[in-house]
Design a protein around this nucleic acid. Structure first.
Lengths: 335, 335
DNA sequence: ATCATTAATGGCAATATTGCCATTTTTTTA
DNA sequence: TAAAAAAATGGCAATATTGCCATTAATGAT
């Protein structure tokens, strides 16, 4: 029994470690549920008691428990895979950090960045516009970063510009601000036929990778946007998310509002507990497909340009973004 | 309770479905354990009884149980993520299918295939030899497939050859024949300094991806073999495996024997329950790092050649393989 | 500041899971 | 082919987990 016991203790410690504030049993159960471990609230309380007696956690009355130094040591000396470094963790962190407010349409949003020579970018603008136009992009906004500007360790080198496209994680962030916890499950290559999503042909789970799946698909030349924008059939990057079934309506409303301000990217939402595009969803949850934020610039790679793209590159203020129609005129200042 | 109950039933059904022969409770518990679900033998027997009463499985006395038609339907109508399509499943299937025998050094082994023009291949032979020579390849054997030959749906087109390199899954297969069940955990980019492995810089779990991680790293140009073979520092593809701690000695023996016949690829084995190169391992298991089979040909991609590589391409007879020193002379017939 | 509402806790009993083991069946060995 | 060894099963009792709920603390509204 000891062994399995230990495992659950470590899972709880892990959750507590990742949170800065105290968590109650209900909260812990919820998070564990999201990660695929079903443990009842009650059981968690039992564990918390035992662990408090052992000095691994410290209870804060009814405000929840936090992990102690001893607890952290215990965690270090053990073998729970440290999900830090995995995409799922980065996603959680980023959506927590951004602070875009949908009412005032201000604040920061998460963007991806692509470094490319302005001249080459200018040559491909026609295609990129088409990607936005056909709705294969996250909304219709983007930004340019001038040479010398930096974002989160990445500095735009001389002779290049940074193209910042809105990351689809922005949606998670907005939902989170409205109390809806989103789980990003996987990024994949979505096959499009007659402008409609058919199925995912390749998949990489966010909790099993340290590099962004969409970056991967783009870099290895597996996407086919040229087809998507020309004939309506191709393969584009997309991401699968899940949220609680109760919030389905609210999600759709928020998505609609986001769309109006140029941040739309929701391809579709499934029905509670039902599989969506053959992707099964846990009970009490609904699935949704979100367009990949890097889509517009992946056209570059497809046309043989080795552009350096980085998903989840950092946060940027919403009012720095402009409509894709302005690309043509704005790029001139860098030529 | 009903809900969780259901989940376990489905897990058991899933295991039974994947097996062609009847499985006993111990066998089922073992397999589930490997996939990360710890359920005791006894509990599984309890479930099997209930499920037999419901007509989902049919017991074969003490030889184990098999899934019935009803059981298959139940599984179809439910939402267990179908791991078919994921790499972990493919790996299991392949290592089960190959039948190389270490004593008679005969039988089939799993290979990866790369399609490339003979001329271009010939130009890069020097580098490829060095990869083998420095021990960054799986053993020192490979094979060529002539135009028109096919392997598992892939046909070598005219004007090209298929380069078959030994896949590291071959190791799993050999161990399996000797009763050692191996779990392939992830593929990653292994950083090499002064010819020694330092740490994994990127990771993709096999049970969370539908495309081979090493293929991904190679295609997106993240490897650095040129560095590895020239200065001793670089990034190469490698894979992390786990097996039961009891079999540690036997594994090392077998690996040694494989090495002697040209199929070596084991970089190192950890100690029981201890983390190895900062990768934590479950209790009662040991971790091991295995060289990526596609390594030799990834030099091509690094040198700007867009070669089409496919990991786990298929099975081929061991006696079709030749030593890498023969590349030079053997390639001539295709030029 | 007070009261109503909401959320969290721990006790208790009902279930579920597991360890242990005697018994039976299968497999291996002599 | 018979005997010995190994593996599998199901009964029973010990633990572990969970559902339910009365009690109590925190939060929000007036």
């Amino acid at each position: 029994m000891d062994k399995k016991n230990k495992k659950k203790e470590l899972l709880i410690l892990q959750v507590l470690k990742e949170s800065d504030k105290p968590l109650t049993s209900a909260r812990i159960a919820e998070r564990l549920g999201l990660t695929g471990y079903d443990i009842s609230e009650r059981t968690i309380r039992l564990y918390l008691q035992k662990m408090e007696a052992d000095g691994l956690v410290s209870s804060n009355g009814k405000r929840g428990s936090i992990i102690t130094e001893r607890g952290l040591e215990e965690l270090d000396s053990s073998w729970v895979i440290d999900k830090v470094g995995f995409l799922s963790a980065k996603i959680d962190r980023m959506s927590y950090m951004m602070n875009f407010d949908i009412n005032s349409t201000s604040g920061t949003v998460v963007i991806n960045m692509t470094l490319v020579e302005p001249k080459i970018f200018a040559e491909n603008i026609k295609y990129i516009e088409k990607v936005y136009y056909d709705g294969y992009a996250m909304g219709n906004l983007l930004t340019f970063l001038a040479p010398g500007e930096s974002l989160n360790h990445i500095i735009v080198p001389e002779g290049m510009i940074g193209v910042g496209t809105v990351c689809s994680i922005t949606l998670n962030g907005v939902l989170l601000k409205h109390g809806i916890p989103t789980t990003s499950r996987f990024g994949g290559l979505l096959e499009i036929k007659e402008k409609k999503p058919v199925r995912f042909v390749e998949i990489i789970m966010y909790d099993g990778t340290s590099i962004d799946p969409l970056e991967v698909f783009i870099r290895s030349g597996m996407t086919n946007y040229m087809g998507a924008i020309k004939t309506g059939s191709g393969r584009i990057g997309a991401s699968f998310r899940e949220f609680p079934a109760e919030s389905r309506d609210k999600v759709e409303q928020l998505a609609e509002r986001l769309k109006r301000i140029g941040l739309g990217g929701l391809v579709g939402v499934g029905m509670p507990g039902q599989s969506f595009l053959d992707i099964p969803v846990s009970e009490g949850r609904v699935g949704a497909i979100v367009i990949g934020g890097l889509n517009p610039v992946s056209i570059l790679e497809e046309n043989g340009v080795r552009a350096y793209s980085r998903a989840l590159a950092g946060l940027i203020d919403f009012n720095r973004l402009f409509h894709f129609r302005e690309m043509e005129s704005r790029i001139k200042q860098f030529l």
